[in-house]
Design a protein around this nucleic acid. Structure first.
Lengths: 196, 196
DNA sequence: GTCTATAGAAAGATAGAC
DNA sequence: GTCTATCTTTCTATAGAC
């Protein structure tokens, strides 16, 4: 009997998990954790409902895994601003685009859901609290202050302005999809909120 | 045997229904129609779970009734702008305040839920479609145009700008409560989106 | 009119066949 | 590894006692 290729098996398993996660993220962001039935995720992933449980022990576990991923992505998006050489205005604009962009949107929406809903697992709340949006925003305060000095941004408490600004973005993310062109237009108008 | 005072009985029944509606609105807006269990509404209203069904035949029926109420309130809020003698800018500002105000907020949030969620009863969707937000916004287009002529508002397609503006408001309504002072501050900043 | 107890339906999670 | 069938839990809705 030939030895099984364990590495290959592991990789298959990992791919399956990714497939399930991708399907789950889509459904969770659309219908919320309670509105999402395991059967929906299975259908979206093209597998049977029972098989889902061979990869994740529960709906909550799957949800929590997705929240972890989303937080890491978000942390990276904020961190990558540091390395950009552009002006404060351009930095915020870039971040806004990323957040509203369809490919990243689901992650931000998931975090949004954790922050606003009472029905998500406590553990998900904990994870988001570990690096909460306020702390992401804190990273931007120096950027914003610099922009104020350069006359790019309006006067006022940077923390409050940024908080309002990202509330608005979060709100927009929750709304039904618009097409790409509209999104691009939106970004410039949104900047009016914080520009001089 | 003295004749029963039917009018009194009717009134009691009506009060009970209002009590249940008030509790339901609170829970529905917080947890969504699926996240809301009848037991939660009953608890919030301080009655037993079974009693709820003596006043409303189903969760959906109760939800739909609330949506009707909310649409009527909203329609009135928009309509009342017509009779105001203030400037276009002041009118929009007033409407914004009303929408973000805690006392009306729940109604707007319920409508928001109907528009964005897939899980609400079809009938609720229908009711909202009868007077959908776009048509509310249409009422404001003449106001906005006048504001543009007066130089109060920025240039651009009124329909698109208003749509974005109310998207932002809707988004903000979904976020956790802020205190009154902050709200007032927000309104002025939000106006920057559409001001010249 | 109101409550408690319970039937019925829906969804989460598991077991067993292939 | 995957699917179908089933157990279990949770919630909606009804029935019956007071």
């Amino acid at each position: 009997m030939p030895p099984l290729n364990e590495q290959q098996l592991d990789q298959n398993r990992e791919e399956r998990r990714e497939q399930i996660k991708k399907a789950a993220l889509k459904v969770f962001t659309k219908r919320g954790i309670i509105g999402t039935k395991i059967s929906m995720i299975a259908k979206e992933a093209g597998i049977s409902q029972g098989l889902t449980y061979r990869y994740y022990h529960s709906k909550d576990e799957l949800f929590i895994e997705l929240v972890k991923d989303a937080m890491e992505e978000t942390a990276e998006a904020f961190a990558s601003l540091e390395n950009m050489s552009s002006s404060p205005l351009e930095k915020i604009k870039e971040l806004t685009k990323k957040m509203l962009d369809t490919s990243n949107k689901h992650s931000f929406m998931l975090i949004q859901q954790v922050q606003t809903s009472d029905e998500v697992p406590d553990k998900a709340k904990e994870i988001v609290r570990q690096y909460p949006i306020p702390s992401f925003i804190e990273q931007l305060i120096p950027v914003f202050k610099k922009g104020q000095e350069m006359g790019e941004f309006c006067k006022g408490d940077p923390a409050k302005l940024l908080m309002l600004y990202f509330s608005v973005i979060s709100g927009l993310m929750l709304l039904p999809n618009k097409d790409e062109e509209d999104q691009a237009l939106d970004v410039d108008i949104l900047m009016k909120l914080i520009r001089e």
